[in-house]
Nucleic acid binder design. Structure first.
Length: 642
DNA sequence: CCGATTCGTGTTTTT
DNA sequence: CACGAATCGG
């Protein structure tokens, strides 16, 4: 069946690919096949993946199969691909080529400013909830006007203001990237013709986790040729909270009635026992396409279920088990600990450190989310885009320059009246001598303007500029470094960040010396963009154990998996309705099916949760495990509950 | 206006 | 527990 999918002659194809059925392999081979046997030029293939990391891996696997050209593939997340299209065809899309990308933190800051302006405290209205509602609207390709009558006026007013703020800063949020691209393609038939006829083949991985906007994008992109190849598994849809719509699978069949459907239900990854456990659990979901994965692999060991007294002893147990495995020659890289929430990693980290076992946390609190790194980024963004109010507010008084509430309000007022950015409003105040020459704001604006001008003229003269050097200068002259000098780790982080910039620029100028689309600030802009789109570059070195959330484990596999915290309130974390419960169950399913050889499930009777020590009930999912495939382990105590 | 301190609140998952 | 917001003295 894999072969059928790879060699599919053309037209729409829907591949139902169960966990471990060789989904990635099929996509990789499919692309390689198109390139070498059908002579499809790489740049005419559009392939959307779930993460940029996955794209990178696939790209290098394809590179190894075809001789060269894989670097030309348009492959990445929907967000990166849309950013690419919008930039490359900025004129046709009617957008500014140098747009910034706002991530969720930026969104929250914008919303907070708006709430402030409306005299609403963040207590009455949760900015995160607003952000989420805005994002969900965009997933449906809806703007505020489309929602009149469906959403309350206050929200719509905030939404409108929010869009204005982004427009002023020439910024797009994640939702805009998809929405702008899709709407333009749908409404402008010339543009659609140009773009859609360029991409002869459209491939989509993890199709079950696409949202409605992404579906419409796929439809528009494949309108010319209908060579659309989607791969997914409704049982692994775990991003409903982010707007993913599993109905896209049915929608696809409606929209492409001639589509061929191929089912990959042979699993090549796990043992029979692990698979039986996973199958048994997922079958409890009512809303799914019926299917049963099978395998020719060996039976393997029973799945162990271990009850521990507390979160601490759960961690100690797992670490003890890992030490035993290590002694018997199992490499740490073949083991993973999976949990529902990042908060659960703490006790494991403590225990691993105590035992001197190297580990790596995937996802979670990221480097670039540290305050000092965010500050540095904000300085760079203001340099590149003075109209970026979010960054302006962030650093205008860090370090303290005597610019407080009063001054900010004055700037805000001018900005509001003239409908300009805070930066321009500040300049306005200075020009009208409403601000004293000796004031902090005056000095700050003058100084920064000078830095920007010098950098610009240097760029014009030399054609290039070392961004790390520039950043260093800014952080020094602004007094930021002195301000944090007592904090050793912050200084270190800043230095690491500067190092990242150096590295990035070397790689960048080696890769695209001439073709640096995006104007004179190309390097800087691309650097900032990568930061918001994919976070820091992953440094994967050395023999280490992996810790990650179940979400982050999607698409990965490990010979040995520990799934921890199988308790009510942890997994399932919430189950206020059937829809939510089923998504939690799919999460458990995804976790089970990461394991190749052994799967160990643990739970604690007591754990720290919400600041309290709480006694925990075993997860309802434990009762769904087939007794014949599992081995109960009583841990330290007696009196098993099941 | 600054910075330190206290207070209170609220906790998923991520492009 | 950890963060941000409110508060207060300088």
């Amino acid at each position: 069946m894999q072969r059928e999918a790879v060699l599919h002659p053309g037209g729409p194809l829907l591949v139902f690919a169960g966990a471990g059925s060789g989904k990635t392999r099929v996509i990789v081979h499919r692309i390689a096949h198109l390139m070498s046997d059908h002579k499809v030029p790489a740049f005419r293939i559009f392939a959307a993946t779930f993460t940029n990391k996955a794209a990178k891996e696939m790209r290098s696997r394809i590179e190894a199969m075809v001789q060269g050209g894989a670097s030309e593939l348009c492959m990445g997340t929907f967000h990166s691909l849309c950013a690419l299209l919008l930039r490359r065809h900025a004129k046709e899309f009617g957008v500014k080529r140098d747009f910034l990308i706002y991530d969720e933190n930026d969104q929250i800051e914008v919303i907070k400013s708006i709430l402030d302006e409306f005299d609403l405290s963040p207590k009455e209205i949760d900015p995160r909830k607003i952000a989420s509602r805005i994002n969900r609207a965009k997933d449906q390709l809806k703007n505020p006007e489309d929602l009149i009558g469906y959403e309350n006026e206050v929200f719509l007013e905030i939404f409108r203001k929010y869009q204005q703020s982004l427009a002023k800063a020439y910024a797009f949020d994640f939702g805009d990237l998809i929405m702008q691209t899709t709407i333009a393609l749908e409404n402008d038939s010339n543009l659609r013709e140009t773009i859609a006829s360029r991409f002869i083949h459209v491939l989509v991985d993890e199709f079950q986790d696409t949202n409605h906007a992404q579906f419409r994008l796929i439809r528009a992109l494949s309108s010319a040729h209908r060579n659309v190849f989607v791969v997914g598994d409704d049982d692994q849809s775990i991003y409903g909270w982010r707007g993913a719509d599993r109905r896209n699978i049915e929608e696809f069949r409606k929209c492409f009635p001639e589509a061929r459907v191929i089912v990959l239900d042979q699993n090549y990854r796990s043992t029979k026992r692990i698979l039986r456990v996973a199958n048994a659990v997922i079958q409890k979901n009512k809303h799914r396409a019926p299917k049963v994965l099978w395998t020719e692999n060996e039976d393997g060991d029973p799945v162990s279920v271990v009850r521990c007294a507390s979160d601490r002893s759960e961690a100690d147990f797992v670490v003890k088990r890992i030490k035993e495995m290590q002694r018997s020659g199992i490499p740490l890289t073949s083991i993973a600990i999976l949990y529902r929430t990042h908060a659960q990693s703490r006790p494991f980290e403590d225990s691993l450190i105590a035992h001197g076992i190297p580990y790596r946390i995937i996802g979670g609190f990221r480097f670039y989310e540290r305050t000092e790194i965010k500050d540095a980024i904000a300085y760079l963004r203001i340099l590149f885009r003075p109209e970026d109010d979010v960054s302006f507010l962030r650093i205008v008084n860090r370090p303290a320059r005597g610019i407080g509430e009063q001054t900010i309000q004055a700037i805000r007022q001018v900005a509001e009246e003239k409908s300009i950015s805070l930066w321009d409003a500040s300049k306005e105040l200075i020009a009208n001598s409403l601000i004293k020459r000796r004031s902090g704001l005056y000095q700050f604006i003058e100084w920064f303007d000078q830095v920007r001008n010098e950098a610009k003229s240097k760029l014009e003269k030399d054609g290039t500029i070392r961004i790390a050097q520039l950043a260093k200068r800014i952080l020094e002259e602004s007094g930021y470094l002195d301000w944090i000098e007592d904090d050793e780790s912050r200084i270190e982080n800043i230095n690491a960040f500067l190092g990242m910039m150096e590295e990035f620029q070397d790689a960048y100028s080696a890769e695209s010396p001439v073709e640096s689309q995006g104007g004179e600030w190309g390097v800087l802009r691309t650097f900032l963009e990568q930061l918001s789109l994919e976070g820091e570059s992953p440094k994967e070195e050395g023999e280490a154990l992996a810790l990650m959330s179940i979400h982050a484990s999607k698409g990965l596999e490990f010979p040995h998996v520990f799934l921890v915290g199988l308790e009510e309130g942890v997994l399932p974390l919430r189950a206020s309705n059937e829809e939510e419960l089923e998504e939690e169950r799919r999460l458990a399913y995804v976790a089970f099916t990461r394991a190749r050889k052994t799967l160990t499930i643990t739970l604690a009777l007591e754990r720290y949760l919400f600041g309290f020590r709480r006694h925990q009930q075993p997860s309802r999912f434990l009762w769904e495990l087939p007794a014949s495939e599992i081995k109960l382990d009583f841990g330290e105590e007696k009196g098993w509950l099941l």
